[in-house]
Amino acid sequence: MVTFEVIKATGERETFQLSKLKRSLSNAGAQSNVINSVIKDLEDTGLFTDGMTTQKIYQEAYRLLKKKSIRIAGRYKLKEALLELGPSGYPFEILVSELFKKLGYATKVGSVVKGECVSHEIDVLAEKDDEYLMMECKFHNRQTHHCNVTIPLYVRSRFVDVKNEWIKQPGLQHKTHAGWVVTNTRFTTDASDYANCIGLKLLSWSFPKNNGLKDLIGRTGLHPITCLSVIDRSEKQVLLKNNIVLVRQICDDLQLLTRLGFDRTRAKRIHKEATEILNLT
């Protein structure tokens, strides 16, 4: 393949790495024959040329995948699906809560917690054994919106106020307390450096390596409903406004969609894709 440069979402140019595309397809569950077929089709379309955007390559790869496997296409769409969880950040908070619940934590969303000085609304509280975690969730609807250093600075001040109160309380004083910032996009270098320096935990799309959101969702199977290609934007909003955030919720309750006003034919089609994405068929 001829070497060429692509334009990232940030506007930066970088040398196109076929290995990254193959890895993203593989992570979505595509076998080598499907991966090779998609790449050949992409080459035939003429997209592998200098100055092409990564978004255009992704969109075409997704279109090709949909023809081959709805399940794989839905999983491949994960990064975009997280961006579609808005406009409010609450569905993202639910997703984060459910991820940590799957990891063995007891979680609460949107709790008001008394600090040493003032009270704070905490996006997600998570507790397991001797761990007690305070999580701030920062949802963005564009890949180019990253969390800069002001976010961990702000979260640390809140965490210190809450921790100073927690360590006075029986049952909490001997636990290991940790502050977290979770985002569906990325952190700037300054944000990462500062958080690492003061001991604040960060979780983003691809950080920590092999344990970012994309990895946790892949391992737990907690795919957001925005992965579904068969539902339109207005239908996604109906589901999100009713706190239906996970594809699994649709699979677990056969009557859920009809109770929300979807006709039976439409509900059956949505349920079919949901089961395919979770590989339950």
Rank of each mutant, 00 (worst) to 15 (best):
S234Q: 11
Y90T: 00
I72D: 02
I94W: 02
K209F: 11
V34S: 01
I167Q: 10
S204M: 03
P91H: 04
A195T: 10
P224H: 10
V238K: 13
V112P: 00
T3G: 08
T15P: 05
Q255L: 13
T144P: 00
I231K: 10
Q173D: 13
F139T: 12
F48K: 03
S192C: 04
V149T: 07
I225V: 15
W180P: 05
V155I: 11
H120M: 09
L103G: 11
C137R: 01
L18P: 04
D215V: 05
L21S: 06
D252T: 05
Y132D: 01
Y154K: 15
V162M: 15
A126D: 10
I94T: 00
K272Y: 08
I94H: 02
L202Y: 03
F139L: 13
T189E: 14
L125C: 01
Y62Q: 14
R233M: 05
N141R: 09
S37Y: 04
L260M: 06
L172Y: 12
P208I: 05
L228I: 09
K20F: 09
I70G: 03
W180G: 03
F92Q: 10
R75L: 07
K138W: 09
F187N: 05
C147Q: 04
P208W: 04
R233T: 11
Q255A: 08
T150E: 13
H140E: 12
N211M: 11
P87N: 07
Q59V: 05
I250H: 08
A274K: 00
T275R: 13
F48G: 06
I250Q: 04
A81S: 15
L203V: 05
N33M: 01
L85R: 00
E12W: 02
A9I: 02
G261I: 07
S157Q: 12
L280F: 06
V118D: 09
G46F: 08
I250P: 02
L213S: 06
E84C: 11
T10C: 09
I7A: 12
I57M: 14
S24G: 06
N164R: 15
V113L: 15
S69W: 09
K20E: 14
T226P: 05
A81N: 08
Q59L: 12
N279T: 07
R233N: 11
E121I: 11
L240G: 04
A28M: 05
M135N: 07
Y62F: 13
H177C: 04
G51E: 01
Y154I: 01
G89H: 08
T275N: 13
V245F: 08
Q169A: 09
I225N: 07
S119Q: 10
T220S: 14
L200S: 01
V238L: 13
Q143Y: 12
A106C: 00
L133G: 03
D129H: 02
